[in-house]
């Protein structure tokens, strides 16, 4: 139950961090909040010769409004984002998702960027990033590039980041008035990874749904967009119908926690509940 030996690096500049990653290749791993990485190291599910700690890197801990987006730096703590008035006002879906992560002691260390870069398919923030069409900023030795969330999540724990890149920021689009958001998930205990979860955003004009996004987590190798259910909602389907459409397009696998069939059935219900809650908020 102790991690194997590693060399610890605590760079203070992004360029130093990416140079270390370039030098050590897949022998190096980025350490942000460490709330997923350290257990994996302790359980010896993973080991690395080098850990590159981002916590002392300058310029990665700001939350700021930029061009219609809310830009969240890589090492903004989940607890900081959870209690940020800027986040609550600009990206309510992120605010609503954060309290579902682990426990407050975990969120005091865990980071928004780290959760997204870790890309656990049963975790909340990758689904939020995908549902909101967030943009992930990757910094590498040659500079930075932007990656659409839709292209970022490759498979379980795998992203489009190269070995020598770090996730340096996530930019979440800010929705306008008349919008509502909700997060629904089924967990065995508060703070556990979800057996199935849904994040929903809607925007309404009178009785008409003008914009809809639905992200699913815990039901595939990556977070998923329920595109057919979004289209159904925009065509006038009610929440229950959209929930059934969302469930009909997924094929979650069986594991020790729940069967795929159960997850599918639950998805129809939680998508319905999330849509109902989001619509209620949008119309209030």
């Amino acid at each position: 139950m102790k991690p194997s030996s590693f060399n610890y690096h605590a760079p203070t500049r992004v360029e130093e961090a990416t140079a270390l990653l370039a030098e050590h290749g897949d022998g190096a791993k980025v350490l942000a909040g460490g709330q997923s990485l350290v257990p994996m190291l302790s359980l010896r599910l993973a080991s690395f010769e080098h850990l590159v700690d981002l916590n002392k890197v300058d310029g990665l801990s700001a939350i700021e409004r930029v061009n219609g987006h809310l830009r969240v730096g890589a090492i903004v703590r989940q607890a900081v984002a959870e209690h940020s008035a800027d986040v609550a006002a600009s990206v309510p879906l992120l605010s609503k998702a954060l309290p579902h992560i682990g426990h407050f002691q975990i969120r005091n260390r865990g980071t928004v960027g780290g959760s997204i870069a870790h890309a656990d398919p049963a975790s909340e923030l990758p689904a939020v990033a995908l549902a909101l069409d967030a943009t992930i900023e990757a910094a590498g030795p040659g500079g930075t590039r932007k990656i659409a969330a839709a292209d970022f999540f490759v498979s379980t724990w795998q992203t489009a980041l190269a070995d020598d890149e770090i996730l340096s920021a996530v930019e979440f689009p800010v929705w306008g008035p008349g919008s509502g958001f909700a997060v629904e998930e089924l967990t065995r205990r508060h703070g556990d990874f979800a057996l199935a979860g849904a994040v929903v955003g809607v925007q309404v004009s009178g009785d008409t749904v003008t914009k809809a996004t639905i992200g699913l987590f815990g039901v595939g190798p990556t977070p998923l967009r329920a595109s057919a259910a979004e289209a159904a909602l925009l065509s006038g389907a009610d929440a229950a119908e959209a929930g059934k459409v969302a469930a009909s397009h997924i094929s979650p696998v069986d594991d020790i926690h729940a069967s795929g069939a159960y997850r599918t059935q639950v998805t129809a219900v939680i998508v319905r509940r999330a849509i109902e809650a989001a619509l209620k908020e949008a119309r209030s």
């Binding site: 460490g34 350290v38 257990p39 302790s42 975990i106 005091n108 260390r109």
Partner: peptide, 8 residues
Amino acid sequence: AAVRACLL
């Protein structure tokens, strides 16, 4: 801030 000492 309260944190897990085994995760640091």
